[in-house]
Amino acid sequence: MRAAGQSYRAFVFDLDGTIIDSAPALQAIAATFLARHDREPLSLEQTKAFIGDGSRVFFRRMLAARDLDAADDFEQRYAAFQGDYAAGSPHDNRLFPNAGEALATLAEAGIAMALCTNKPERPTRIVLDALGLAPIFGAVVTGDTLPETKPHPGPLLHAIAELGGATGEALFVGDSEVDARTAVAAGVDFAFHEAGYARERDGIRPVTRFNDWSDFAAFARRHALAATG
């Protein structure tokens, strides 16, 4: 954690649990898959607990929670789940209150922003387009951009490099212990969205924490170096 007066040239954001509340949409997608296998749907709390480590890990956790053995046909079942995912409405993913306005305000101020998510590229692009967020980000790094996913530092470092930034002038904004570990591994300051899906909070040491996106926008304006600055 750096000094309170630190300024940032690059802001990188997680997606699920940080910008969008995707848990209800994922719960519905999971329910569609599980119904075909005569299994009960996941609860909303289970769904939130399974988010954060990528689509494959979510799927494995879902199978384990409903005693579905996919050792022999995992890829086939995962492809079916991805089909359910693609068929779902992207509008079921909701922006957290004030998130869209905050991001638009920061973009208008010339602040360089990127996305770094473990969600696969196709659903990420669909959601960004549906919610009008695609033009905001100068770089989008997804769960299949690189061989590694968060908490490996590679995706975050790649996003920062795509913005032309340096780790000492970057801030990563996320909602989970996975995001916090990613920031530590990359040597990047971390901002914690407390209204997200974190399972473990005790070890998270952010430079700032927020529930309301308006509060984060105010923090970012105070600590931002504009892309042209």
Rank of each mutant, 00 (worst) to 15 (best):
M113K: 02
E121S: 14
D129K: 12
A114N: 04
P120M: 09
P123E: 04
L128C: 00
T105C: 14
T117M: 13
E121L: 15
I136C: 09
P135Q: 12
R122V: 13
L115N: 04
V127L: 07
A130K: 08
K119W: 11
F96K: 00
F137G: 01
A112Y: 10
I111S: 09
G138V: 03
A112K: 14
I136K: 01
L128K: 01
R122Y: 03
V141D: 05
D144A: 07
M113L: 12
A99R: 00
T142Q: 06
L128N: 00
L106C: 14
P123I: 10
G138Q: 09
A134H: 05
A139T: 03
L103K: 03
I111C: 13
A107S: 15
P120S: 08
I111T: 12
T124W: 10
C116D: 09
R125L: 13
L115W: 07
V127D: 00
P97V: 03
N98M: 02
I111W: 10
L103E: 03
F137P: 04
D129R: 12
E108G: 13
T105E: 15
T105N: 11
C116V: 11
P97N: 02
I126C: 10
F96T: 00
N118Q: 10
L131I: 09
N98L: 00
R122G: 01
A134I: 00
D144K: 12
V140Q: 08
P97W: 02
A104K: 14
T124G: 10
F96Q: 01
F96L: 01
R125V: 02
A104C: 14
T124H: 11
E101Y: 08
D144S: 07
A134W: 01
G132N: 10
E108S: 15
A139M: 05
P123R: 05
K119C: 10
V141W: 09
A114H: 04
P97Y: 02
G100Q: 05
T124V: 09
L115H: 06
A109P: 12
K119A: 08
G100E: 04
V141M: 09
T117R: 11
V127N: 06
L115Q: 08
I111R: 09
A139W: 04
R122S: 09
N98Y: 03
C116N: 11
E101N: 13
L128P: 01
I126T: 13
A112G: 12
V127Q: 01
C116I: 09
G110M: 14
T142G: 03
A104E: 13
L128V: 00
E121G: 11
L131M: 08
I136W: 04
M113P: 06
A139F: 06
I126Q: 12
A130C: 09
G138I: 02
P120F: 10
A130S: 11
K119V: 14
F96N: 00
R122E: 12
V127C: 03
A104Y: 04
K119F: 11
F96A: 01
D129V: 02
A107P: 10
P135Y: 07
A130F: 07
T142C: 15
R125P: 01
E121P: 04
P135L: 10
G100Y: 02
A139I: 05
T124L: 12
R122Q: 13
G100F: 01
G138P: 06
G138F: 05
P135F: 04
N98K: 02
A114R: 04
R122L: 12
A104I: 04
A102S: 15
A109Q: 15
G110Q: 14
L115P: 10
V127G: 01
